[in-house]
Amino acid sequence: MFFKRSRFCGALWATERGDCPFSSTGYYSLSGFTHHPISEIDPRHPTEIVTQNLLESLAAENDRQRKTALGEARRMAQQCALKRHHAICQSSIRSSAERAMHYGFFASDAQRTELWQAAYRLYHELTESGHYTPDKIGRISGWSEITCRRWLEFTKAEFAFLRHLMSGNFSTEGFPRHMLVRLGHEYFDLPPKPGGEPVIAIPTITAEMSLEIEELEADSATESKMDEVDDGEDNTNAIEGSELQNAPPPETPKIEQLCLF
């Protein structure tokens, strides 16, 4: 990391590929951290501007945003696993995938693995599940057939780019510049890692999807039972007083003691 002074106070820049705590793009503007007019250069020493407290606060916020992107991608994958894809706009799914992919560049290897595997599931849903063909996308979005086909082609190109990167190959030949900048920002302008990039395993879709479905269906069943209990209480309140007087006394419930050790 280095600090570059400018008429807007300055900015922080990443100097190498890999984990960048202060920003998901490898760049952070400090224009809001000066009280001097724009026409004057902030005379303070860089260490007076870039303090330890500032770096820690930037790292905490960047980590929060990264976790939010991962949680969003995982929730979207769960909805797709429950076959609710017909109610989800394809653009929302791709947006979650792109965000997870974006936050995986300037991250640790473990963080990148989680983010990119989550993004992989979403791209797989859009391009290989058969749920988002041009005609189905058109019915959901109201787009023309040409627009749907172009959108799907671009989504497939992003998915191919993700698989390329997950293999540990970070060569950019054959991929358009605008895709590199939009998803990876300044990452590809920095020198390669001396030890190379990590290889990320392709997630197994079917097994994990089945597990997620069972967990979510169990939660749904529990909520239904709770609703039934609530309905029963409401019905009891509706019984007239005479009926309550004639009702037999409730049985004393049997209490069973479980031996846990």
Rank of each mutant, 00 (worst) to 15 (best):
M1D: 15
F2L: 12
R7S: 13
A11F: 07
A14S: 15
C20V: 15
S23A: 15
S24E: 12
G26I: 14
G26R: 13
G26V: 14
G26A: 12
S31C: 11
E48C: 03
E48I: 05
E48R: 03
V50A: 10
L55H: 00
E56S: 14
N62V: 06
R64Q: 09
G71W: 00
A73T: 02
R75T: 09
L82P: 05
K83W: 09
A87R: 14
S91P: 06
S92R: 03
I93Q: 00
S96G: 03
M101T: 12
F106G: 06
A107R: 01
D109C: 08
R112L: 00
W116D: 07
Y120V: 03
L126D: 04
E128S: 13
S129Q: 04
T133L: 15
P134F: 02
P134W: 01
R139A: 12
I140T: 11
E158M: 03
A160E: 12
T172M: 13
T172W: 14
G174K: 09
R177T: 09
L180K: 13
P191D: 15
P194A: 12
P194Q: 08
G195T: 15
G196S: 04
T204D: 12
T206W: 08
A207N: 07
I213S: 02
E215S: 02
L216R: 00
D219W: 03
M226R: 15
E228T: 13
E228C: 13
D230C: 09
D234K: 10
E240M: 10
L244D: 02
L244T: 04
N246C: 10
P253F: 09
I255H: 10
L258G: 07
F261H: 14
F261N: 15
